[in-house]
Amino acid sequence: MEYLTETFIPYARILVPLLVKGLGITIYVSAAAFFLSVVLGALLAVIEHFQIKGLNQFVKVYVSYFRGTPLLIQLFIFYYGLPMVMDIMKNCPKTLALILCLALNAAAYISESIRGAIESIDQGQYEACLAFGLTYTQMMTKVILPQAAVAAIPPITNSCLDLIKMSSLGMTIGIQDIMGEAQLTAATYYKTFETYILAAAFYWALAAVLGRVQRMIEQKIGVAYRK
């Protein structure tokens, strides 16, 4: 009890405002990266689904690389490695580097989720479109993709959650997000346990909010699929 009032709460008073500042950065980085990764992921999924010549091979290598190597290495290559060989990369701000890296990584997973969702739509749905003379575009936009979107929500939410957690790697290149602030403050006050417990609580709360958003979206657009 004494520990709470004498140590934990006074320290929390110092740390929490810093973590809130970091939270802003975490949300900003994650939201931007997530948005980009969904756009890029959809593009990659379409290329794979329609087996677009030339690009198709590239997507396979892309997905295999980003799923097969640690994000930390991808980030180091991007932020520390590329500036050594490419001049334009020298001026890349670290926040942008992190956003792009996270987006490129998550897009690999999201493209697989979208592709899986499209492939989960049964052949009969395609035939019911073709038999009535719908064009290819009408079939995709009015029947197939709306159904695929619903199927893709759970795995894409997972990717979003992963992305938020992985954004903490930004600390390694000096990003002042939740993790960055925590690490700095822990080092100043020598309070490792208290710091990371609170930092974990922040990520956990974000995950809880995301879970709620997922349920809300599912309620709204999943209405057709409930008995």
Binding site: G124, Q125, E127, A128, C129, L130, A131, F132, G133, L134, T135, Q138, K142, V143, P146, Q147, V150, A224, Y225
Partner: peptide, 30 residues
Amino acid sequence: RSRTSMVFQNSNLYRNKTALENIKLPLTAV
């Protein structure tokens, strides 16, 4: 395709459309 129509063994109704929308889609789109 636009001058014939088909009733399938498993109905193949558009799953994201209501009963009424199922009938309307070929009419408005095609």
